[in-house]
């Protein structure tokens, strides 16, 4: 395409040989990016002067967060626990349901192209839905509370683990699977004994990794009423009670750090 609009230049060497030099794409990319930046500035009403004038406000807010309000800590335990539990339940259920869906989406196991396609499109669409949007929808269906948050995390985990798992299944070696099929074992059983052990460590590691991320996501789901610590964050910021917000963020950082450290330890052991 590009080479048709800007045909390659013929370079003639002193000894008479010619070589065709493709036109550099750098100028085109550079100009495109510049135009895109200009348009984006127009679209987003980007104003540097406003930032210069009011930017200090941001640091003023951070300043108010330090030191955090320690008396607020007792109020935090329950929502924090809710957040963690939402993540755990959503992640575990999502990872479990991901197995049959990944099975259906693996083209080397399921030969029916329609089923594979449907399973993959289902996973892609689920994965594209931002967690907060699915949580929002879930609050309409399941009411406000932790259940909606759990559902949202469940759906995201299902999509994320499902995609990575079917890719791993497709990369697994098929020898044992075919051997088992040839001696008359059903496909599902052959999958259970030949493919699943190969992908199991990776599957568990992916699920743990997804769980780590889910704790962060779960923390904001309360904003749309889906339970957990997000509700408090919203309240604190709404009432400009920044010292409490600082406390919440500190606890959140500690929790995320602890969970990541533990999970990372197990993930390293697995692979």
């Amino acid at each position: 395409m590009f080479d048709k609009i800007f045909p390659p230049k013929q370079v003639v060497l002193p000894n008479g040989k010619t070589v065709s030099e493709k036109r550099s794409r750098t100028p085109l990319i550079f100009v495109t990016v510049l135009i895109a930046v200009y348009l984006s500035i127009r679209f987003t009403n980007f104003e540097f002067s406003l930032l210069a004038k009011r930017g200090h406000e941001f640091f003023a807010i951070i300043n108010e967060m330090i030191p955090p309000k320690w008396e607020y800590l007792p109020h935090l335990w329950q929502p924090l626990l809710d957040t963690i539990m939402m993540s755990i339940l959503g992640s575990v259920l999502g990872s479990l349901v991901a197995v049959p869906i990944a099975y259906l989406a693996a083209s080397n196991i399921v030969k029916n192209k329609v089923i594979v396609m449907v399973a993959r499109i289902f996973l892609s669409i689920l994965r594209t839905m931002p967690t907060l949007v699915s949580a929002l929808i879930a609050t309409f269906i399941f009411g406000l509370g932790t259940l909606a948050g759990t559902i949202a995390i469940f759906l995201f985990t299902l999509a994320y683990v499902g995609k990575l798992l079917y890719e791993q299944i497709e990369n697994a070696s098929m020898g044992a699977f075919e051997a088992m099929e040839s001696i008359g074992i059903t496909r599902i059983q052959a999958f259970r004994y030949a493919i699943f052990p190969q992908v199991l460590p990776n599957y568990l590691s992916t699920s743990l990794f997804c769980f780590e991320g889910n704790v962060r996501y779960a923390a904001i789901l309360g904003y749309v009423g889906a339970g957990g610590i997000g509700l408090l964050l919203d309240e604190g910021l709404g009432w400009r009670d920044y010292a409490s917000v600082g406390m919440i963020l500190l606890m959140l950082a500690i929790t995320v750090f602890l969970i990541e450290t533990v999970s990372e330890y197990f993930r390293k052991k697995l692979i």
């Binding site: 941001f58 807010i61 907060l132 962060r216 923390a219 904001i220 904003y223 997000g230 964050l233 919203d234 910021l237 917000v245 963020l249 959140l252 950082a253 995320v256 750090f257």
Partner: peptide
């Protein structure tokens, strides 16, 4: 670690 929504609100 701080969720994006918090920055947004700030």
């Amino acid at each position: 670690t701080v969720p994006s929504l918090v920055y947004g609100l700030m």
